[in-house]
Design a binder for these strands. Structure first.
Lengths: 213, 213
DNA sequence: TAGATTGTTAATCGATTAACAATC
DNA sequence: TAGATTGTTAATCGATTAACAATC
């Protein structure tokens, strides 16, 4: 199950989840694909196709129950499970991720950060201690950590990734400006690439200026 | 010019730029589409098609001159221009963005941050002062700011975006967990959505577990 | 010139949209 | 039951890949 679902579909699932959360917050109990399509600026067809990759969550003549659909998408995304996250690198980005309480709502809890800087060790961020990098492997094994966010310089990223994977981490959330990739297909990676995003923004500005000319 | 280029192509351009930078750093002077395709794990055909959207940068029988191609892609992305960036919200994410020196290499300079917290005002991060939010509009006008990064809570994002756009900002780099969109088509937006990225990572882990069963 | 590799056209593949029968 | 809206099949569109003639 859940195999062969295209990447394009997966990319859209968190977005549906987000809009459904907003609908719950505003007290909407049911919604049709066409209403949702207007809000999200996508076609109703796409919504129905996307959802039907995972099952029939709607009801003919009625639409979708917002809370039910929200919960189902949550399950698809694995948000009903607890995830233990560590952060490698207690710089500003590490702090930012550790401080963002909202992740907790979706089942992700930052249990510790790791850094080599002695000044940072002992600090506690949002309940999570900053530990010396030497304790990394043992900590992962002892605490059953599943995910690691990498907020280290580009040059350190691959080495750190190997280290945490060898200790048992199954998912890497990489903020360093390289594409990490693993031989071991059981390891998942998300490369964030903020710089790419900023460059696309720059492109968008430039190409609009050109159109004006 | 530069119109009608598909989004899929645009998304890949910063990635080419990144790989070319690495090639320069390792002293490679020329590269063929097939060599590059192996490194990047894409097809050579795609590389040639992508680049030819913007012009013929290669030479038959030779391949591509790495430095030349790098510079050309830089121009396409607008990295030869200086961009003045302000950051709205001097929290951890704001700090992280302001501290990331690498952006500077690509022509983006953070000139100021804005916050409403009096404790933060007066702080200087990587050369950029934290200013009170009341000075926002005047500052944008006086300093010809083109870009604004939003690292404020979700609820504040749309309001802040309107404010900076009204003062003349043409590009919004949005880190708040909402899709910002503008009537005014001359405004560019990049919505980052770190939470979506984390959810996709979670999905990836979950679906691999399911496959094993 | 011969060999290599691009630029570009044509073929294929996959994703999106449209249409409609099924059904609540 | 009639009306609404899904789930799903079929049609279209766009993006990717393959092939090859142009050319350095």
């Amino acid at each position: 199950m859940a195999r062969g679902i295209s990447n394009a579909v997966i990319r859209r699932m968190p977005r549906y989840y987000r809009y459904l959360e907003d609908l719950i917050d505003s007290g909407v109990e049911r919604i049709s694909s066409s209403e949702l399509s207007e809000r999200m600026h996508v076609t109703a067809s796409q919504i129905r196709q996307d959802l039907n990759n995972f099952g029939g969550f709607g009801q003919q003549g009625y639409g979708y129950n917002v809370k039910y659909l929200y919960d189902e998408i949550g399950k698809i995304l694995g948000l009903d499970k607890r995830h233990k996250l560590i952060i490698i690198g207690a710089g500003h980005m590490g702090h930012a991720l550790a401080s963002y309480a909202k992740f907790g709502d979706f089942g992700f809890s930052t249990v510790a950060l790791f850094d080599k800087d002695p000044d940072k060790i002992g600090e506690v961020i949002n309940g999570a201690p900053v530990l010396p990098i030497e304790q990394l492997s043992d900590y992962i094994r002892d605490h059953n950590v599943d995910m690691a966010a990498l907020t280290v310089p580009k040059e350190k990223a691959a080495g750190m990734a190997d280290l945490v994977v060898r200790a048992g981490v199954k998912a890497i959330w990489n903020f360093a400006n390289v594409d990490l990739k693993f031989e071991d297909k059981s390891v998942s990676v998300e490369n964030v690439h903020l710089t790419d995003s900023l460059m696309r923004l720059s492109y968008s500005v430039i190409s609009k200026e050109k159109t004006k000319e």
